[in-house]
């Protein structure tokens, strides 16, 4: 068996540009976690069902276990590490998850946060049923999902209220 090929990639993640040399087969999830040390993105099924590895690729939620890092070149990647403020202050979405007990063990949480972040950006007016359908994209074993739906709905409502108030 020969040494697997490596590829030299330039990845833009959370507005920072990184150069990495990885095997072509390395998934985006593993590259983020183990080459860029952004371990907030979690890996829990590696076949695209559980969604723990969900990140934003050019704004769209996507499974980073179902992308090779090489495919991400030229795209803007956002991970959970990008959500909080520079001072560590939680974003409105993160705050809503905490306030609504939308997480227990927290392992699936980064995936749900990025799913919701991408979804709400596209559908700020989503109602509870739409939110529930999107939440069904990812698996959580702790919460029974209700408080995840609550959290995202709470965040969406606050954003809408804030927008109305400023209008």
């Amino acid at each position: 068996m020969t040494e697997p090929d490596k590829v030299l990639l330039t990845l833009k993640v959370n507005d920072a540009v990184h150069e990495v040399a990885v095997e072509a087969r390395r998934t985006l999830a593993d590259t983020l976690r183990h080459d860029l040390e952004l371990t907030g993105t979690h890996v829990a099924c590696e076949h695209g069902v559980c969604g723990a590895c969900t990140v934003l690729v050019d704004g769209d939620p996507a499974r980073s276990c179902l992308m090779f890092a090489a495919q991400a070149e030229g795209s803007e990647i956002r991970t959970v590490e990008s959500l909080a403020g520079d001072d560590g202050s939680l974003s409105d979405l993160q705050t809503a998850f905490s306030a609504n007990h939308g997480l227990q063990c927290g392992f699936c949480t980064p995936g749900f946060l990025m799913l919701a972040e991408g979804f709400l950006a596209e559908r700020p007016d989503a109602d509870r049923e739409e939110i529930r359908e999107v939440v069904s994209s990812n698996l959580c074993r702790c919460t029974g999902y209700q408080t995840i739906v609550d959290s995202i709905q709470d965040c969406a409502e606050r954003r809408r209220n804030a927008k109305e108030a400023s209008a």
């Binding site: 976690r33 183990h34 040390e37 952004l38 371990t39 907030g40 993105t41 979690h42 890996v43 991970t79 959970v80 590490e81 959500l83 909080a84 560590g88 939680l90 993160q94 998850f97 905490s98 306030a99 007990h101 997480l103 063990c105 927290g106 392992f107 949480t109 980064p110 946060l113």
Partner: peptide
């Protein structure tokens, strides 16, 4: 009291450390 959890900030920001995060 339904206080918010002390665990949450690190779990919400990617700052938690799970086994696979250890290098």
């Amino acid at each position: 009291a339904p206080v918010t959890r002390k665990e949450d900030p690190r779990l919400l920001t990617g700052g938690a450390r799970f086994v696979d995060d250890i290098h």
